[in-house]
């Protein structure tokens, strides 16, 4: 290679480098642009339908009168149940794997298994819910079946983020607690867990934001696409005030209502769908924002 070739080669390399900088920047921008397009398109389609009646009406055969009352109430039920079931179980499993588990084949098996479960398509969880909760355990096509199914779905996510948060707690904190005679559980319960809690909350909220948009598994267990009544409310005026009959009522949720509207031929329902999506996206984005806020805030606050 003579001197001239080398100089040319060098020039080529430099322009290729520049070219990629431009390409990379544009492609990244493109991806962000698509996100923006999606949001704008939906807001444009659905904004006109967004009003208080939309929130307080049941679905209807007439697009202009249809609302998402049964859908958002159902979503609230399902989300509450899902978190009540999945959060403690996920955190406990995460604690076991990170703090207690010996290095053996059972632990190894559990770890591979959780990694796999995190990647199992959500529709398979729907089949599990249908076979296990609805049929085998005779819980029916009910709120509790839906909550339990989604809880199993997000359990791996909560376990993985719990482990990550626990791993981020410095080992010196554990040593400090052990050195003054704390037992393992005292160490975990009083020192490690509180330090890891913001991270665990972040992961849990992200998992919940995924669960709130899940459609397929709930269709599988037979959440209805048209429903004009609500599950019995948990708080009632008669003794003992807290009633859980609602758990066994049929239900629908926001994404299923949206799916139902998208599947109809009439154009008016597309607007309803878009309006429903604005609300669903709003909640999902808000949850993500809270999670990111928690993460950055506590990353700054606690430094070891």
């Amino acid at each position: 290679m003579n001197e001239k070739q080398r100089v040319n080669r060098k020039k080529l390399n430099k322009s290729l480098d520049k070219l990629f900088l431009i390409l990379g920047f544009s492609v990244t921008l493109l991806a962000l642009g698509i996100l923006l397009t999606l949001i704008l398109d939906i807001v444009q389609d659905g904004w006109g339908r967004l009003n208080l009646d939309f929130l307080t009406h049941f679905p209807s055969r007439k697009p202009q009168e249809a609302g998402i009352l049964s859908a958002w109430v159902g979503t609230l039920w399902i989300m509450t149940l899902t978190s009540v079931i999945a959060f403690p179980l996920g955190v406990m499993a995460g604690i076991y794997l990170e703090e207690y588990a010996p290095q053996n084949r059972i632990t190894n098996l559990i770890e591979i298994n959780i990694a796999n479960l995190a990647g199992v398509p959500s529709i398979i969880y729907g089949l599990l819910g249908l076979g296990l909760f609805v049929r085998f355990m005779h819980m029916g096509r009910s709120v509790i079946s839906g909550g339990a199914t989604l809880a199993l779905l997000i359990l791996p996510m909560i376990i993985l983020s719990t482990r990550e948060a626990l791993r981020a707690v410095p080992f010196s904190i554990r040593e400090a607690a052990y050195a003054i005679g704390a037992t393992k559980w005292q160490t975990v319960r009083h020192q490690v867990l509180p330090s890891a809690l913001p991270g665990i909350m972040t992961g849990t909220i992200l998992a919940m934001s995924r669960a709130i948009g899940e459609t397929a598994p709930l269709i599988m267990i037979g959440a209805l696409t048209y429903i004009a009544f609500l599950p019995a409310p948990p708080l009632q005026s008669q003794f003992p005030f807290l009633h859980l009959n609602g758990l066994f009522d049929p239900f629908t949720v926001l994404p299923i209502q949206i799916f139902n509207w998208v599947s109809r031929p009439q154009k008016g329902f597309f607007e309803d769908a878009a309006a429903g999506i604005i609300i669903l996206l709003g909640i999902a984005f808000l949850m993500n924002a809270v999670a990111i806020f928690l993460r950055t805030r506590y990353q700054k606050k606690i430094r070891w």
């Binding site: 904190i173 040593e175 052990y178 330090s195």
Partner: peptide, 18 residues
């Protein structure tokens, strides 16, 4: 646990609980 009850330890890097 009883051992650490009788024998305390101070570490290289200060490690107060947060």
């Amino acid at each position: 646990i009883d051992i650490r009850d009788k024998i305390g330890m101070v570490f290289q890097k200060p490690n107060p609980f947060p």
